[in-house]
Each structure stands twice: as structure tokens, then as C-alpha cells.
Design a protein around this nucleic acid. Structure first.
Lengths: 214, 214
DNA sequence: GTGTACCTACCGTAAATACGGTATGGAAGA
DNA sequence: TCTTCCATACCGTATTTACGGTAGGTACAC
């Protein structure tokens, strides 16, 4: 949209009550213009040529017929510049992951206060993302499913040196950095190798990073 | 914490101005109690036995000495129930990914309004997550792409050898594994080093893992 | 057919590493 | 007080690495 125009919003939501409250919400904002408000993705496909292209789409995810997830692919093809905010009463991991993969810019629970939904719209227009805290938590869980931080029995000094090893420091450089003799550095490295059961630089760096020992 | 007590908050922040504003913010809340406010992770390690364990830690990520990322591993070991909110002026992908992997419950930009930081503290206490919209966007980017992968101009053979280097293989071992002469391995490694602009094993392994070149 | 990229192979050498020792002083804990 | 752990420091040496060369054969593009 041009700078002096309102941002065009579409609403796709089958629950009449919630749909109505979204309509009111957008109409209350002087920066947003409600261009289309329908109750199914199929209706969007019918109406799409009759209305202006959206800047933001508020999309219910749990729709009869085409789901909100399927709609995301459709929007990406037809309106690549539109930002889509998924609205949901559900909180399951799978859908969050799928929605993000398919290009959603926001993922808000329907119980989010009106003010925060408006904030969310502003945020996605600015190129940021808007996520309810509970959803954010689930996103994090999805990302984390992998490597926990392991506890090593390295001493503080050994961790100091391990950190420098990972950064590619030689014994000489470490000696200079920590202001201790190269002999001492050598001793520490020997102890690190023994504790981590490795025998060369590559192994120690690899293990330190992969097992997040630093 | 018990229901009728205030939630215990620690602040670890080296910028005196921002640290002070965090202190004021927490003192203004009647649900939070500022138990510890220091300017480095090292200080936390010194003071940890003298104060009550935290419910929430506001942790600056860009500290001299031990970084906020390293602190996360420490907190997980020492105070597994504490929720950590990372505060940052930076917005780079790598740190977000790392912080979440290491168990941060929140990731807020320092420019976040005070009210929203308090909201964020409430959210992590409730087991939700708190993320600035810009950070959320970056999280989504990371999820969509699997993980930030950099394009290198390494040849197939060089990548083969890089994998073995990361696994701690010596030139001799690589030579045996790939059934080529050690001289050839040496040549390939030289070329890898030149392309990645590194000069030793530790650096090449570190770069290969961190930038997901393999 | 000329150039370029890639994989292969070899030489020499200064530098760095890996690893076996031993040893001292301080702090922490039993 | 005695012991253990930690950080510090030193010695010697075989092995490995880093990196400067050079060079042949193949494949593909222009």
C-alpha cells in the first residue's frame, strides 16, 4: 500500500462471534481497512478478484473445508507480499511448525487481548513476527529437540582454555592471552584431552561445540 | 517460591544505566523481589551461595568475560528451575539459536518497553516464553531453513575431507580412509584452509560446525 | 583448442602439537 | 593435620601440521 493509505486487512474466520469482534477491532483502527471478511478459504478464492489485495490476513486455522494451513500455500502464490497471522484456539506443536514452514508471520491464540492483536498486525506489517507467549514456548521446544548442554568435569581454567582452543588459539597465543607460561597451557590441554577422551585439536573443538561444553 | 512470597529476580547486566533501570523496574513490582544485581557472570559465581536462588534471571548476552550464552549452561546446572530471559541489543541469528538451544525462556531486545519486560517476566514464570517480535521473526527464519547454512565454495572432495577433519582424523587416517596419498590430503587441506580463511585444525573444525558447512 | 576447475601427487622445512614425565604452592575439605 | 584438587611450571621428543612450491591427467565450457 501507499504511505498515505490504510493497510488492507482480510479476515478469514468461521466462528461468527469471533469474526465479528475482529471486524470491529479493525474498523476501530484508523490505520487499517477491512477489505474482506469471509468464513472459509473457498470464499476467499471466489472473492479474490473483486477486492483489493491484502497487506495482512487474519486466518483462522481450524476451518471446515480448506484449512488455514492449506490457505498459506495459496496466499503465498497469489499474494506473496501479504502477511498472514494464524489465529487459533489450539496449541499443538505440529501445526505451529507447519504454519511457520508455510510462511505465516504470526501465530496468535484467539484469547489474546484485542490490543495485542492490533499490535501483532502492526508488527507483521513492519516485517517482524507476532507470537503468543505460549506459542513461543512451543516454538522453542521444537527448536530445542536436539542437544542439551552436558556437564563436564572441567575446571574453570580448563574451560577458559577450551574456549580459546575453539577459537583457534595456539598454545603460544593462549599463553599470551592468559598471561601464563606455555608449559602451563600445555599441562591444562593435556588434562582437558584426558577428561574429554580426545587426542587432538580437531576432536576437542568438535566435542566442545557439539556437546556445548563452553 | 511459595505462593505468598515474591518471585526472586537476579539481574546480570554490565551497562550501568540499563542495569539501574532494570533494578527500578523490578523494585516497582510488588510481585518481584530483586535479590541480586551484578555486572558479570563471574560475580554471579562468587555471590551465588550468599543469596537466594532465583526464579527469574535477566541476563545480558554481551558481557565481557563469560558470555550470557555460557551463563545459560551454568544456570541450568546450578539453578535448573530458574527461567532465564536473555536481554540483547543484538539481533543476530546465531545467538538466538544458541540461546534457545541452551534453554533460555525469553529473548528480549533491550529497547523493549518496561511494561513489556514485566509482562515477559510474568510469562516465563507461568511457563510460557517471551520473545520480541523481531526476534520471533528470526526464530521463524531459523526454523524454516532448518538452521542457518552458509554457502561455501568447497568442492565435493574438500567437503569429504572436511567431514573427516571434524571427526578428528589426521592426514594419515584420511589418506587411509579415502585411499589417496597423504600428499593429496595435504593439498586438499591447504585448499580448504585458503577458502575458509583459517590456519589451523581448531579453526577449520570450529567454522565447519558453526557455519554448518558439512 | 584454450582456459579453468578439480583431483591427484610429490618435496622440504619451520612450527606446533601430543604426551610421557616431575614438581611446587595454595585452597578446600575430611 | 593430612589429603586431594587446582593452577602453575618445566623437560624431552616423536609426530604432526602448516604452507611454500611444482605438476600431470581429466572434464567441461567458451
Amino acid at each position: 500500500m501507499k504511505n498515505n493509505q490504510k493497510h488492507i486487512v482480510w479476515v478469514v474466520e468461521d466462528d461468527p462471534l469471533f469474526k465479528e469482534s475482529m471486524e470491529e477491532l479493525i474498523n476501530l483502527s484508523d490505520k487499517l481497512h477491512l477489505e474482506l471478511s469471509v468464513s472459509s478459504v473457498e470464499q476467499v478464492e471466489e472473492e479474490k478478484h473483486k477486492v483489493h489485495a491484502p497487506d495482512v490476513i487474519l486466518q483462522d486455522i481450524g476451518l471446515p473445508g480448506k484449512s488455514g494451513l492449506e490457505a498459506l500455500g495459496f496466499y503465498r502464490n497469489e499474494f506473496p507480499d501479504a502477511k498472514v497471522i494464524i489465529l487459533t484456539i489450539f496449541e499443538d506443536d505440529e501445526r505451529i511448525y507447519e504454519a511457520i514452514k508455510r510462511g505465516a508471520s504470526g501465530y496468535l491464540l484467539k484469547r489474546t487481548p484485542a490490543k495485542q492483536i492490533l499490535d501483532g498486525i502492526d508488527q507483521v506489517i513492519m516485517g517482524e513476527a507476532s507470537i503468543s507467549p505460549l506459542i513461543a514456548k512451543k516454538m522453542m521446544n521444537i527448536m530445542v529437540s536436539g542437544a542439551p548442554v552436558k556437564e563436564s568435569n572441567l575446571t574453570t581454567r580448563e574451560k577458559d582454555i577450551l574456549k580459546l582452543l575453539v577459537d583457534g588459539f595456539s598454545m603460544d597465543m593462549i599463553s599470551g592471552e592468559l598471561e601464563i607460561s606455555t608449559h602451563t597451557v600445555d599441562t591444562h590441554i593435556k588434562n582437558i584431552y584426558r577428561k574429554l577422551e580426545v587426542h587432538n585439536r580437531a576432536e576437542v573443538v568438535s566435542k566442545a561445540i557439539k556437546e556445548r561444553l563452553i
